[in-house]
Design a protein around this nucleic acid. Structure first.
Lengths: 138, 138
DNA sequence: GCTATCTAGTCTCCATCGGATACTAGCATA
DNA sequence: TATGCTAGTATCCGATGGAGACTAGATAGC
């Protein structure tokens, strides 16, 4: 239990061919997609793209995130090379998280998701209302 | 347990202001982002954007998906108005799933994620190897 | 002097989530 | 008669995620 899963070196079955394919469960790209299609990762990346932030600042800005998930997600993002962690030996110690160049390329792919949610929210809620009404009398 | 969670009409606290903000846990846009930043939803949308498909076809194409998650995710996507379900009364019954116009707008926002995973996989794996090596020697 | 507070987490407990497996119906095929 | 097809559902159990207590070491307040 001292070892969080992300530290474990998972046995990595080599892909049969060299074409990356997210639809193959064992493909490394699929593992990356699994990690990246994650609400906390998306929210953290969007915030850090806007500037370096400290742990508790992120915690305050992301409504509903637990310390455990924030800590876990940041560690994964750091391992994936998307986020950089810098500990400053003050008392108490402060830790700064910033986005890396690689992380910035992912942010470009991820921010449209936030935009989409914010612009199409009305259409989604309308669809849900329609669906629920049909279910009740259907 | 007969009622899956997506059917429940969750008590929906009204947002204090009218600005959608995914960082607020109670904001409807956040709920949408939570649903949409999901690996199965992403993979299903990408496949259906390419053409109408049947349940078992999707199951075969998406490596590692369980029937339960496929069925649940399709139902959610249908409720959100992103996917249309058509049951054809053959024997045995066949069911066709297709993407809606709204779903197509989301697909445009989601496909870059797949592209990103497939193009940056090498950089991510390199970062992971670097991180793991550092961890081992402290 | 004693207590509270700040930081960035970790630890433990528990509810929920997701995966594996078995099962359903009704007809076609071997 | 047994087997397979369809599109799921029911059930069990392990993995995941959230709530809250707890850690260190220095500082500020009473």
């Amino acid at each position: 239990m001292g070892e969080p899963r992300i530290i474990e070196l998972a046995p990595r079955p080599l892909p049969k061919d060299l074409t990356p394919d997210v639809f193959v469960a064992e493909c490394p790209t699929r593992r990356v997609l699994d990690r990246v299609a994650d609400k906390w990762a998306v929210l953290i990346l969007i915030l850090l793209a806007d500037g370096t932030k400290r742990f508790n600042a992120l915690k305050r800005m992301i409504g509903g995130v637990s310390q455990k998930m924030l800590s876990q997600t940041l560690k994964s993002l750091e391992r994936d090379g998307l986020v950089a962690r810098r500990a400053i030996p003050t008392v108490p110690v402060t830790v700064e998280y910033s986005i890396t160049p690689l992380g910035r390329t992912l942010h470009a792919a991820v921010d449209p998701l936030r935009i989409w949610a914010e612009t199409h929210i009305a259409a989604v809620e309308a669809a849900q209302a329609r669906y629920d009404a049909e279910q009740r009398q259907g």
